[in-house]
Nucleic acid binder design. Structure first.
Lengths: 105, 105
DNA sequence: TTGACCCATCAAAAAAACTCGATACAATCC
DNA sequence: GGATTGTATCGAGTTTTTTTGATGGGTCAA
């Protein structure tokens, strides 16, 4: 049984956070570095409450962190969570098909 | 601009398919090898139409393939799609923080 | 203090996802 | 043939997610 070695709830949470195009867009924009909500409103053109909502989903999944400075909230990507997500996806990857010739001997 | 290098729609489709615990459970079970719907009904205990529905979502995302044999439909994981998913997640991973000391010199 | 600004949160509406039972269909068995 | 089995699909109902506009809190500048 390999199934037990899979962290099902965590995979679902992380993937759920990345299941919406708007949120993936946000992540893509944050690859350029820290941004405040108003920057993101310009980049994507989305309403403020909509962005706040999606940022909250990303934050609750642990994929982004926020920092307040005066009136602004700055968001950044949480690198560790993306590393984790990659590892969890890898845990779902079946080993190479046995129908392929082995390349030994 | 790094954002343009990210395949936003594909990430959303793949993650959406893995955003539901039932579907991740199915994938986890398929790690043990090909199974028919009735096998999965036993493993998870879920109704038949529910499983068909989730299998369809997984199939449309390209994560599983099916094969008909007589009355049975056998499902398997599509390794390539999981490799792709891992790469796409990696494309969202920010480079290591600049605040860490570089380990050169 | 007043007013402008950035943002989080709320309530309501709209849209999408999910579940369940029923039906349909093809393959097998008698 | 008729009955049974394994599965896909449909429709209705429910639940969850997403969007939108409104409200309010905190910050800053005049």
């Amino acid at each position: 049984m390999i199934a037990e070695r899979v962290n099902v709830p965590r995979i679902a949470i992380l993937c759920n956070a990345l299941a919406d195009e708007a949120r993936v867009e946000i992540v893509a924009r944050l690859l350029d570095g820290e941004k405040c909500v108003c920057d993101l409103m310009d980049d994507l053109d989305a309403g403020q409450s909509r962005l706040s909502y999606h940022l909250k989903v990303l934050k609750e999944a642990g994929l982004v962190a926020d920092r307040r400075e005066g009136r602004w909230s700055y968001y950044t990507l949480e690198r560790a969570a993306f590393v984790e997500a990659g590892e969890l996806i890898t845990s779902l990857r079946p080993r190479a098909s046995r129908t392929l010739k082995t390349n030994c001997c």
